Simulated assay, not measured.
Amino acid sequence: MTSICVFGAGAIGGLMAAKLEMAGTPVTVVARGPHGDALRTKGLTLLSEGQETVTRPRVATDPKEIGPQDYLVLTLKAHSLLPAMAQLKPLIGPNTTIVAAINGVPWWYTYKLGGDFDGRRIESVDPEGKLTADLPPSQVLGSIVYPAADVVEPGVVEHTYGDRFSLGEPDGSRSERATRLSELLIKAGFKAPVRPRIRDELWVKLWGNMAFNPLSALTTATLDRLIAEPGTHAVCRALMVEGQQVAEKLGVKFAIGVDKRIAGGAEVGAHKTSMLQDLERGRPLEIEALLGAVVEMAEWVGVDMPIGRTVLALVRQRAAMR
C-alpha cells in the first residue's frame, strides 16, 4: 500500500486528502490549530459540486508516529516551510517523494535546470540553502495547483472550481513515481498530467500571481477591479512583461500571450487574491516566492525590472506595516 501524507491539510491539502480517501487511497494528514482539532474529532467534510462528503483520514499529532512516507505532499505556503521543518523531517526517508504543491518559485527550481544557472541557490526562497539541505531537490516532484478551495470552518473544506494538479520531474523525465501518483490522483477524480516541461506551466501560473497578488495587497482591490481599471491593468501587464523576459532568459516557453493570461484572471471575477486575504487576516504574506525570487533571478540574467523592484519594495513595506 502506498503511504501518502498531506502536510498542511488546509483548503487544497484537505481537498486532495478527501478525494483520495473517497477513492480508497488512505491518507495521513498533518494539520494545526482548530482545523486540525476538528479533523480529529469530526473528520474532514468536503463540499463540492453540491454534495457534502465526510471522510476520516488519519490525523497525525506527532509526525514521528508515522515515519517516512512514500509521498509527502506539501500544501503549505512557501514561507511556512522553514518553520515546519522539524515536523517535516520525520516524514522524509531516502525513498520519499516530496511533492511540492506550492505556489511561486520553489526552492528546487534550478535543480536539473541545465545551463549557467543549474543548481544555483535562490536566496529569496532558500536562505542559506536550508531548504535544499532538508528537502533534497533530487527527491522532489513538482506540482502545479489549479483548484480553488477554502476552509469555511474548522474541518470543512469547500471546493469552488478546478480539478487539475499537473506533475513534473525537474529533469523532464517520465518517472515511475510521477506516473504512480498521477494514477492515484486520476482515480480520485482529478486531472493529473505528467508534464515534460513543468517549469513552463509553473511560470504561466506564476505570471499572474507575481502581479495580481502584490498589487491586490497594495490596493485592496479584488481581481476584477484590478484588471478592469486601466491604470492598474497597465501596471499588471508591464510587470508581467518584465517577468516574461526573465523566464525566457531561463529557457521557459510560454504557450499563451500576456493578454490572454490577464483575461484568464479577469474571468475569475470579484476574487480576493490569497495575498490580500492573508493581509486582511494578519498573516505573513507570500512575497518572496511570488515576486522576490523573480526580481532576484532577473539580476542573474541581466533583465532590468524597474516595475518589479518598485512593487516588491512597496509590498514588503506594506507587510512590515500591517
Rank of each mutant, 00 (worst) to 15 (best):
66 I>G: 05
62 D>F: 03
69 Q>T: 01
43 G>A: 13
40 R>S: 10
69 Q>V: 00
66 I>C: 04
37 D>E: 14
53 T>D: 12
65 E>A: 15
55 T>P: 06
71 Y>L: 03
69 Q>H: 10
58 R>D: 02
63 P>Y: 01
55 T>V: 15
60 A>R: 09
70 D>T: 06
59 V>A: 05
36 G>S: 13
48 S>A: 15
69 Q>G: 03
57 P>D: 02
66 I>F: 11
49 E>C: 10
59 V>H: 09
37 D>R: 14
45 T>R: 03
70 D>K: 11
68 P>A: 15
35 H>V: 06
44 L>E: 02
41 T>N: 14
43 G>I: 14
63 P>I: 02
48 S>R: 14
57 P>F: 12
38 A>H: 02
65 E>T: 14
52 E>L: 02
56 R>L: 01
58 R>P: 01
66 I>A: 05
69 Q>I: 03
61 T>L: 13
39 L>F: 03
45 T>K: 00
43 G>L: 12
53 T>S: 14
59 V>F: 10
57 P>V: 13
62 D>A: 12
38 A>M: 12
60 A>S: 15
49 E>R: 15
69 Q>E: 13
54 V>Y: 10
42 K>Q: 09
58 R>T: 05
58 R>V: 03
44 L>W: 05
52 E>V: 07
48 S>W: 00
37 D>Q: 15
37 D>V: 05
44 L>Y: 12
65 E>S: 13
36 G>C: 04
62 D>E: 08
54 V>K: 13
48 S>G: 05
70 D>L: 07
56 R>A: 03
52 E>F: 00
70 D>N: 14
42 K>D: 07
35 H>D: 07
55 T>F: 00
45 T>Q: 03
